[in-house]
Design a protein around this nucleic acid. Structure first.
Lengths: 247, 247
DNA sequence: CGGCCGGTTGATAACGCTCAAATGCGGTGG
DNA sequence: CCACCGCATTTGAGCGTTATCAACCGGCCG
């Protein structure tokens, strides 16, 4: 799939594009690149002149405390555009890295500005997309500050499953989630040991499986209820929310 | 001060305005209103057609878990514009409320769109401002997920002091912060009891005073060091960062 | 004067962390 | 093909931070 098509698919998750918009987006030129697990793509302090789209794999955004503790801020599935905010932010103030071997597309800012200048609708959608990232950070803040370990974990799994379904990456009731238990801990603000224990507790409930980088939801309703998951913060449009589980 | 002037002051914290931009912003019309402590200004699910500026007092943005636990996402000092993202977000997905009796300005979206249509520079600055809010949420996520209670508290106090200085609201080494200990707990993800104990511990270090809604920093360097505070995430421009403490 | 709210204090328990070690598994080199 | 290594996962024990429950104090307002 071409880079422009990925952007089209991404923006259609949150709004409507005209045929003219789609032609504009298809005209976008960029390169693609492979990144290995653990590799940093953007680092704190730099001033990127390009944006990224995820073609395959899994990326994360994270920050570090002065003591070296790592906190994940978001995960990015294929079709996501992790750093659109660099278009107007200047200094990038955290890190973007690969959680698993991934393929990314690299698009110069000027290409994006070109299509935004030509289509106010595309500008509005890209702006909206950057705002939804903030919404997501707030939900993670709520989750990590106010929920116990098992609910945090269920919440993250609900989010990933919902987003994977929205872009057609879930086959049946399972999707790829190539994260280690330590990675989970960095997302949820838990120690690796406690992640392991919590995971085994959740497995014992029979709500899900999680092994070798794959998440399988066995009881979607039960999982949603343990964490009272409300997907409003993802702001998916009705068509994108179609892929509900049948359970 | 007129509402447009407040917006000018706010945007100049993060970038430059031309004289023409300032005239445009001064032409903005809006109303002002009083809100009492605890009063909600925007609620989850609504679709606002106006934005807010803080003229006086203190606002908060917060979210609720299904169990009713409250998590604060941000505090807004005078001159802040708490919900500029509603220009492009559609549904508002959390709550905006007053932490203390406050004066707010209410500006119709169409007024903002008018000046943004006339000045791409203003559009870029407003967009940038909405992005900085996301940056702030991520810092709060890092703080609440990875720092112990005393460092969380020191971090919040450092942020408030830095922002108050940037808008000239700090007199010497103290500034107004009309929050209760329970409010602090909702920001930091701590129980009110533990907030009280932590506060007394910090007071015992001699770094600061906090009583009757006023924060006084006695040892800025010490406070910054306990939490390794790095203000990059606030993205204040060099002039706005001028008000460093002399200590 | 009484009530309410915010702050303070004490006792106890729960949740999650740290340290440490063992297990399992996939990949690599001999 | 096997031995080995590194990495991820699992398990155990003990500890520390923070939550909960409960009571009490003090100031402000009606």
């Amino acid at each position: 799939m071409r880079i422009g098509d990925v952007l089209i698919q991404h923006l259609e998750l949150i709004g409507d594009l005209t045929p003219a918009d789609e032609r504009l987006l298809q005209s976008i030129k960029g390169e693609s690149r492979h990144v290995g697990r653990g590799e940093d793509i953007l680092v704190k302090g730099e001033r990127p002149d390009h944006v990224i789209v995820v073609l395959d794999g899994l990326l994360q955004r994270y920050g570090l405390t002065a003591e070296g503790a790592r906190q994940m801020f978001a995960v990015y599935l294929p079709v996501d555009a992790p750093c659109l905010e660099t278009l107007h932010m200047g200094v990038f103030d955290n890190w973007l890295a690969a959680l698993a071997p991934s393929e990314i597309g690299i698009i110069p800012h000027r290409e994006i500005f070109r299509v935004m200048d030509a289509s106010p609708n595309i500008l509005a959608l890209i702006w909206r997309d950057t705002l939804y990232q903030g919404s997501l950070s707030r939900e993670w803040l709520l989750r990590n500050s106010q929920m116990p370990a098992h609910a945090r974990m269920a919440h993250l799994f609900c989010e990933v499953m919902t987003r994977a379904r929205a872009v057609g990456l879930a086959s049946g009731d399972s999707c790829a989630l190539p994260m280690t238990q330590q990675d989970l801990g960095e997302a949820l603000g838990l120690s690796p040991v406690h992640v392991n224990r919590t995971l085994m507790m959740i497995r014992a409930t029979g709500f899900l499986e999680f092994e070798r980088g794959r998440l399988t939801v066995l009881d979607w309703k039960g999982l949603v209820e343990t964490t009272e998951f409300d997907d409003l913060y993802l702001h998916l449009t009705p068509p994108a929310r179609g892929g509900e589980a049948r359970s």
